[in-house]
């Protein structure tokens, strides 16, 4: 290799690395943890109710959050926002309809004060399911033993129920019959599924 060619190669490498080093923004960190969140091959083989915490009643998941909600809401100054994150990790218990699948855990909202009395949620309280990438995703509410669709607004990639009342909610989606292959969609939805935002939650004790 001639001296000139090596000099050009060195300069080119330096320029390339310098441009890359000046790259404006880091990619968002991936969310995957060491323990895998979903694994549909084994999930599909398991009995439906054996997958995860989300049972038909669903109350278990959110009772915990509601307990914290009580504590946090009492401590909130006026006008403060409170965001509660439930981190659901389970997917796809078969729901109603041939291809309609529940793709989040059921979320039960109960709000009580320290004395155990129910507190009415303020009109500002809302339940948001983020990033429902699956087509025809919708929020359902448990009415007796049956899931019923509820009105939800689409905000970007989120579905929002507002005002939200105490009850059990979940995200459903129409997925094709080979849903176990829709790995990325289900993962994305399940990982980002549920968020309850309550503004001025304790304004109506």
């Amino acid at each position: 290799m001639t001296r000139r060619l090596t000099a050009v190669a060195g300069a080119a490498l330096m320029t390339l690395l310098a441009v890359a080093a000046l790259w404006p923004s880091a990619p968002p960190p991936a969310r995957a943890q060491t323990a895998p969140d979903v694994r549909l091959r084994e999930t599909a083989a398991a009995t439906p109710m054996s997958v995860g915490l989300a049972s038909a009643s669903g109350r278990l998941t959110l009772r915990l959050s509601s307990a914290r909600l009580d504590e946090d809401s009492l401590a909130l100054p006026d006008g403060a926002d409170l965001t509660l994150l439930a981190q659901p990790t389970y997917v796809a218990l078969p729901g109603a309809g041939s291809n309609l699948l529940r793709i989040s855990p059921a979320i039960t909202i109960t709000v009580r004060d320290a004395g155990g009395r129910d507190i009415a949620l303020s009109p500002a309280a809302r339940l948001t399911f983020s990033q429902p990438k699956a087509e025809a995703a919708a929020i359902y509410r448990l009415n007796g033993d049956a899931w019923r669709a509820v009105q939800a607004a689409t905000l970007g990639r989120s579905l929002v129920v507002q005002p939200v009342s105490p009850g059990t909610y979940a995200l459903f989606a129409e997925l094709s019959r080979d849903w176990p292959l829709q790995h990325e969609i289900l993962t994305a939805v399940a990982l980002n599924a549920a968020r309850l935002v309550a503004d001025d939650l304790a304004t109506q004790p």
């Binding site: 330096m14 390339l16 690395l17 310098a18 441009v19 890359a20 080093a21 000046l22 790259w23 923004s25 880091a26 990619p27």
Partner: peptide, 17 residues
């Protein structure tokens, strides 16, 4: 592109030349 720039960012610019 970001990762390609990491060696220089991590080792500082003095390493580039």
């Amino acid at each position: 592109a970001w990762l390609l720039g990491e060696p220089v960012r991590q080792l500082t610019w003095v390493s580039l030349p």
